[in-house]
Simulated scan of single mutants.
Amino acid sequence: MLKKIAAVIIAAITAASSAACTGEEKLSEKYPDTSVSQSAELKLSNPDADKNAQALYSYICETYKHGMISGQQESTWMGSEQYEFDYIYDKTGKYPAIRGLDYMNDDFDGVNRRAEEWFKKGGIVTICWHCGSDFSHSWDECMKTEIADWDKALTEGTAEYNELIAGMDKGAEALSKLRDKGIPVLWRPFHELDGGWFWWSKGGAENFKKLWKIMYDRYTNHWELDNLIWVFGYSGNGRDYDKWYPGDEYVDIAGADSYKDGANASLYKKVTAVVGNDMPIAFHECGRIPTPEQLKKGGADWVWFMTWHTSYITDNNDTDDLKAIYNDDYVITLDELPKIYQ
């Protein structure tokens, strides 16, 4: 029933011209049996967001607290680009709705190709970016490189700033190619931002917020990446979450990563304490997927989960539990997504 309701909702949203999660006529009034709870009219931070980004955001907002969208991070080094997805289908008969990709190792063309293939299946695309402080390479460089002088790097007109922008623009150029094909992206840069292990958080909260705003402005106003939904991701063991938050005008969806078993309800509540009860909150990375029963008991309304790749999905999830989760009415899989895009 939930998925039939979602299809009705998205049809109404897509026809609307507003980017609001709830339009001038509340969906709860038009479809009283849907129990839509959003009272605020949430809009994307970018007022010029394109129609597919608007439609996807609206669907996510309306799903929030009524269902959980399934997601899986890909790997590309296990003999097949579909390694995790084939595994899930073999064990559950279902595919996840969200495909997680990563621009690491400058794999812009490969990521974009796979993103387009998933989009054409009606799926949802999210992209992160493991890279060094020069926006190159991969996970090791995330951990081992640093910004030598944050003041210079974040001050317009300096050589260090120009170098930062040049690296940042590599991602923007790749994302612009997805924009030109009408592909919306749940863009999750600088993830686990408060953890202290990646270069982007080593300069502290104030420098991080400046960095986030620079990327947001560069991508939104210079590159006109109107296909992006900006996803802000905390680590699972950070503190002082409010000090790292750049503001609602720069964020569309918040959330966190955790590899602890269970609903992680306390983590969910920590994020809610910063962004409030209306903005969708996602479980950006996990190992063992929480069951709907655990979520309901703990009061954690994660709008999606994203299982990490390789052994995190194959070794951390009991196959019977995995099948039950993917076939639970509360969990939305690829075949159960409504027609979101135009």
Score class of each variant (00 low, 15 high):
Met1Cys: 11
Leu2Asn: 14
Ile5Tyr: 09
Ala12His: 14
Ala12Trp: 12
Thr14Asp: 10
Ser17Val: 10
Ser18Asn: 13
Thr22Glu: 15
Leu27Val: 11
Leu27Pro: 08
Tyr31Leu: 15
Asp33Met: 14
Thr34Ala: 12
Leu44Ile: 06
Asp48Asn: 13
Ala49Leu: 07
Ala53Ser: 11
Tyr57Gln: 07
Ser58Ile: 02
Ser58Pro: 02
Thr63Gly: 01
Lys65Arg: 13
Met68Ala: 02
Ser70Glu: 10
Gln72Pro: 02
Gln73Ile: 08
Thr76Asp: 15
Trp77Tyr: 14
Ser80His: 07
Glu81Thr: 12
Tyr83Ile: 11
Asp90His: 04
Asp90Gln: 06
Pro96Leu: 00
Asp106Asn: 11
Phe108Pro: 06
Gly110Leu: 13
Val111Cys: 08
Arg114Glu: 14
Glu117Gly: 10
Glu117Ala: 15
Lys121Asp: 05
Val125Asn: 10
Thr126Gln: 14
His130Ala: 02
Trp139Met: 08
Met143Ser: 04
Ala148Asp: 14
Asp151Thr: 13
Glu160Met: 07
Asn162Tyr: 01
Ala166His: 08
Gly171Trp: 04
Asp180His: 07
Asp180Gly: 11
Pro184Leu: 10
Trp187Asn: 14
Arg188Thr: 03
His191Ile: 01
Glu192Phe: 10
Phe198Gly: 15
Lys202Ser: 11
Gly203Trp: 12
Asn207Asp: 14
Phe208Thr: 03
Lys210Arg: 13
Asn221Met: 02
Asn221Cys: 08
His222Leu: 09
Glu224Ile: 06
Glu224His: 15
Asp226Trp: 15
Gly233Arg: 00
Asn237Ala: 10
Tyr245Gly: 00
Tyr245Arg: 00
Pro246Ala: 02
Ile253Cys: 03
Gly255Arg: 08
Lys260Trp: 05
Asn264Ile: 06
Ser266Pro: 08
Leu267Arg: 08
Val271Glu: 06
Val274Asp: 11
Val274Glu: 06
Gly276His: 12
Pro280Glu: 07
Ile289Trp: 07
Gln294Lys: 08
Leu295Ile: 05
Lys296Phe: 07
Asp301Thr: 05
Trp302Asn: 04
Trp304Cys: 11
Tyr312Ala: 06
Asp321His: 06
Ile325Cys: 02
Tyr326Ser: 00
Val331Glu: 05
Ile332Arg: 00
Pro338Leu: 03
Lys339Ser: 14
Ile340Leu: 00
Ile340Gln: 01
Tyr341Arg: 03
